[in-house]
Design a protein around this nucleic acid. Structure first.
Length: 497
RNA sequence: CGGGGUGUAGCGCAGCUUGGCCAGCGCACCGCGUUUGGGACGCGGGGGUCGGCGGUUCAAAUCCGCCCACCCCGACCA
């Protein structure tokens, strides 16, 4: 038994070695998670840091994150939110003020006990999220209904001591934005929670071409300390679900724990109603696993750090002299796009084609001697691999053609991802069928809302309740897929990251 | 935390069973030349206190002991 296990592990390690040195990626259908690991490193998005579970986000990956950030930030600002920065270190006692919150987070806290060579009076935790310290500050700042609402967001890094880590999807340290708002009324806070969820969904669909489903988390899956958690759930290329953003209605839980009180219009002291919401660098993982293929990364044009890669092609010095001026002319003409001219010497054009495909650049422009003669360029769409995605077009009105093509790609990515998702969502007729379908897809089934039923599903199948969607509920009543009792809503069940 | 495994060049590995040749191979890297419209090739070159400490021995990557680190499998999570 031991011998056999050892052999298997060594064999896999050996195989891994072969794969890493081979030029081809591990195909998705052979080993999706290996495909993912390779793509992240080979596209130079991120690399492993010396500390277990930590990663270095490389310039290309960070550029992608910056574009994600810009797209979200502009939405937040347009809806009246402002940015600020709160400290990394939080007194440990703060975490303990909200009962559910501390229960949820204490197993994954990193705690600082020594500072300046001396044991600290009170240990400090490195923020796993900032509800507590922000709650503390809000208590100082909020005195009157005139101070409300407070609509603050921060872009920050946080630390959660996870057991099993994956690049982007789950790392000890990750980057995100966390919004924290305080309101006068429950209604207003609930509205804010949903309004942010709408912004998240709008971002995911329009900018990232990641189709997401908006919904409410079950009690078991909700944020520690929240009254209600909402989520955008996306389906990855292996049909597993990824929670891609969350928005929480916190009720008065944190207001009570941190004394966020204000005098209302009738001069009566009231607890404020708060929300919090976040999207993290995990979203990069969502982009990778939604669009990527066996050639590598595929990036949506609206977020791609490089939208167009231009490859000059020549053999002789004469050809080079003829081609380069045209390349320069085209470069200037396309200056409105994020472009990269690949002028590396010593690697063949074929290598460059594959290289930019690995890195997910949506559109490639090739300019060679034939194009100089014919006033043409070759363009190749990343979303359509191989010859079918390649065409020769006139240099005339090139910027317009490129613009149209990028928009077409953006649209095509969303359509393809949506079709894939819909094809893998099932409506099982009974529990046995549910157990089958969640092995390779999602189930959309009636659920009575009882925690025992979702626990049973989780234990039997490893699938969890992803969300109770806000849209697409059939209405009326059905029977719980597990216990058969009366159910008023349907929920998505899937294996998740 | 429990069970298993691995530490040899930047990466992936062989060598260890049975101690002794100069510690080797592939990829990557550097130089020169030929190549270049789908992952080029030849020749030359640089790079390692064999995870650490101790022991056995004339002699240790190899045998023994302790320690450290990382990986994989099981209970939590943006």
């Amino acid at each position: 038994m031991h011998l056999k296990l050892s052999f298997t592990i060594q064999y896999i390690t050996l195989l891994h070695g072969v794969i890493m040195t081979d030029e081809k990626l591990t195909p998705q259908n052979e080993n999706f998670s290996e495909w993912y690991n390779q793509i992240v490193q080979r596209a130079e998005l991120a690399d492993y840091a010396p500390v277990r579970g930590c990663m270095v986000i490389r310039p290309y990956g960070w550029a992608l994150w910056e574009n994600v950030r810009e797209a979200l930030d502009s939405r937040f600002k347009a809806s009246g939110h402002v940015n600020a920065a709160f400290p990394l270190l939080i007194p440990k006692s703060f975490l303990e003020k909200e009962k559910e919150h501390v229960e949820g987070f204490s197993p994954e806290l990193a705690v600082v006990t020594i500072g300046g060579n001396a044991e600290l009076e009170e240990p400090l935790v490195i923020r796993p999220t900032s509800e507590t310290i922000i709650g503390h500050m809000y208590a100082k700042w909020i005195k009157s209904y005139r101070d409300l609402p407070v609509l603050i967001n921060q872009w920050a890094n946080v630390v959660r001591w996870e057991m099993r880590t994956r690049l982007f999807l789950r790392t000890l340290e990750f980057f995100w934005q966390e919004g924290h708002t305080a309101h006068e009324t429950e209604e207003e806070a609930r509205k804010e929670t949903l309004s942010i969820l709408d912004q998240y969904a709008d971002f995911a669909i329009k900018e990232a071409a990641v189709p997401v489903i908006k919904g409410r988390k079950s009690n078991a899956e909700k944020f520690a300390g929240a009254v209600m958690s909402t989520t955008i759930e996306a389906m990855m290329g292996d049909t597993r679900a990824l929670q891609s953003g969350t928005s929480h209605f916190l009720g008065q839980n944190f207001a009570e724990a941190f004394d966020i009180q204000y005098l209302d219009r009738n001069n009566v002291l009231q607890y404020a109603w708060t929300t919090s919401w976040g999207v993290s660098t995990r979203f990069i993982g969502a982009i990778i696993m939604t669009h990527g293929d066996d050639q590598g990364l595929v990036l949506p044009p609206r977020l791609a750090p490089i939208q167009v890669a231009i490859i000059p092609i020549y053999r002789t010095d004469e050809e080079k002299e003829a081609v380069l001026p045209v390349v320069e002319k085209v470069r200037q003409e396309l200056s409105q796009f994020r472009i990269k001219v690949d002028d590396r010497e010593g690697v063949t054009p074929g290598f460059k084609f594959n290289d930019w495909e690995m890195r997910g650049v949506p559109l490639r422009v090739e300019i060679g001697p034939k194009d100089v003669q014919k006033d043409s360029v070759a363009i190749a769409r990343r979303d359509i691999p191989g010859r079918e995605g390649k065409s020769f077009i006139s240099q005339e009105n090139l910027a317009g053609t490129i613009q149209d093509t990028l928009e077409t790609i953006q649209r095509a990515l969303l359509e393809k991802a949506t079709a894939f998702r819909d094809a893998n969502i099932h409506d099982p007729k009974d529990y046995a069928e549910l157990s089958e379908v969640v092995k390779n897809g999602w189930a959309f089934s009636w659920w009575c809302g009882n925690a025992a039923c979702e626990t049973k599903i989780k234990e039997d199948t490893k699938a969890t309740t992803r969300c109770i969607p806000f849209e697409g509920q059939p209405g009326g009543e059905g029977k719980c897929i597990v216990c058969g009792k009366k159910a008023s809503e349907k929920a998505y069940f899937a294996r998740a990251y």
